[in-house]
Every structure is written in C-alpha cells, then in structure tokens.
Design a protein around this nucleic acid. Structure first.
Ligand SMILES: [Mn+2]
Ligand SMILES: [Mn+2]
Ligand SMILES: [Zn+2]
Ligand SMILES: [Zn+2]
Lengths: 141, 141
DNA sequence: AATGCGAATGAGAATGGTTATCATTTGCGC
DNA sequence: GCGCAAATGATAACCATTCTCATTCGCATT
C-alpha cells in the first residue's frame, strides 16, 4: 500500500503553495518540520506563502495521507512525509534532534496489551524523550 | 521512594484552593482530569476556585511531584495523582475512558533502544488510542 | 486575639498556536 | 481566452494556558 506521489492522485489540485510545501518536505534534510518552521524556510528563500495557507495545506496533506502529524513535548505540531513505514521517535530534549526506530517486540506487546484489555487499536504514539549525543547539542555544554 | 501526602511536606502552604483540588484527585472516581474538568467539578459543587488558580495549582503540584501531566490526543493537558508507579495508557477515542498498563518487556526494549542510539532516557510517553468496550461507549453505536 | 508581610488568589488581559472569515486570485475544464 | 469553483492572503477569532496586578489570605510574631 503506497502513498500517492503527486497532488492530483491525492485529490488536490496542484497549486503553487502546495507544490512548494511538498517539495520542501521532499528536499529538506530535516524530516520533521513544524508549520512555523516551514513558513520561515519558505520566506527566507523568498517564497512567500501565508501562514494560514501553510496550516491549511499541512492539514490537507495529513488528511490525504501524504503527511503524518506528531505531538512531541513542545506545544506545536510536527509533520513528516508519510513513507508508509510506521516508526516511533526518540526526541532530544535539548536540541530538536529526532531519531526514528521500529521495534517488533514493542509493536507486538502493544497489540497483545490492547487485545487483553478488549480494545481495538487505532494507532499509538511512543515518544522517548532523552539527551542525544550530537556534537553540537547544548546538553554537551 | 514515596510522594508527600500533604502540602506542607511539598513546600506548599495549605490554602483552600489547594486543599480542594488535592482532595478532588483523591476522592474522584476519575483518575485523569483536565484543568477545565476540575474547574467544572468544583463549581458544580459550589466550591468556587478561579480557573487561573486551578492552572497555577496544577502546575505547582506537578512540579512538587504530586501530579503527573499527560498530553493525550486532545489538546488539553490531563493530570493524575502521582502514586509512584509508572504506567502507560490506552485511551478510547470515542469516550474518554482511559486504562492503565505496565509492560516490563516494553520498558526493557525502550531502555535498550535508547542505549543503542546513544541517548540517555529522561522519560517516555506511550499512548495507545483505541476503541474501548464499555457498555455506554459511543463507539458501540 | 490583633498585627504585619510575603505568598496566594481572582478577574481579566495577554499570549501562542491554530482555525475561521471573506474578499480577491488562481487552476483548469470548456 | 472564459467562467466558476476552489485556493489563497490578510486578518480576526479561537482556545488552552499564562501573566498582571490589585486584593485577600496564611501564618508567624507580638
Ligand atoms: Mn519520523
Ligand atoms: Mn494513569
Ligand atoms: Zn540533542
Ligand atoms: Zn470508549
């Protein structure tokens, strides 16, 4: 089961703001971006898209299955391209570094726990908050 | 390692709003409560505490280790008494029913994953979103 | 029990992320 | 190129939460 690669196949007409935002996700080295982050990146490269449109497009892309939305500990939503491979996240509390992981044991335990409680899982969110080891991370001080 | 049972031992002078809110958590059948929920419960029993104070007290209690704060899928924070036993949550997407669980396998895998990535875990949040089986849950139709 | 003072509270303004409104512009089938 | 529904931009509104500041309260000391 694959995601549509273009806007039309997602039922969205291809407009300038949508194309800019989609290509930003496809080309940025940061996989995980907030609305404000996208807005700032676009403006600093001279591409003016209104903040309202950034929010609208992100929501549309999420509904179309192009993007996934995350709620990390910060109060702003963070988005990433939906490549169809589920994974969870380790988020550095000092810098904004995010690492992805997938653990079959955890996934299996979750299924079993929900079943044992008589629940039908829709989705889950697992965020590990930690200190990372990046050279330039402020937790290195 | 135990939590303080009273306000003084948490370094908080015992005021009327604080005592009301603490006893609400100790006596309510709902373990997981939002600021607005607390405000409403207090007001419907004639106990008037301003919403600003509810928010202030919740934050103070959290900092004192008396309460834990959660960010479920809804945009408002949810609090529960900190009884010192870590657990994760299954949240029904239809009603607000919450079940708690603790799984040693998941906890162990998380530690290992963080270590493998060179991170030092501070905390984690694992929320399973699902449909529950309560008789009166709207997902029953 | 009255006093005094710093901490706590209440009322409402302010904030920050996000959504809604509405006039104007744009994509795109004809 | 036309026409119109859909998309956008500017800005107001929203909503949970925090802040401001004048008033009140807890509590230690007379
Ligand atoms: Mn990711
Ligand atoms: Mn709980
Ligand atoms: Zn870091
Ligand atoms: Zn339910």
């Amino acid at each position: 089961m694959h995601q549509p690669k273009n806007l039309q196949s997602a039922g969205l007409k291809s407009t300038t703001p949508r194309l800019k935002i989609l290509s930003l996700f496809e080309n940025s080295k940061e996989r995980h971006l907030s609305a404000e982050g996208i807005y700032n990146i676009l403006h600093s490269s001279g591409e003016d898209v209104s903040l309202a449109t950034v929010y609208r497009v992100l929501t549309q892309f999420e509904q179309a299955g192009l993007l996934l939305r995350h709620h990390f500990e910060s109060e702003k939503s963070v988005f990433e391209l939906n490549l169809g491979k589920h994974h969870d996240h380790i988020v550095c509390l000092q810098c904004d570094h995010v690492e992805e992981f997938y653990d079959t044991a955890i996934e299996a335990r979750q299924k079993k726990i929900a079943a044992d409680h008589g629940f039908t899982i829709h989705e889950h969110s697992l965020y590990i908050y930690a200190d990372c080891t990046k050279r330039n991370c402020p937790n290195k001080r």
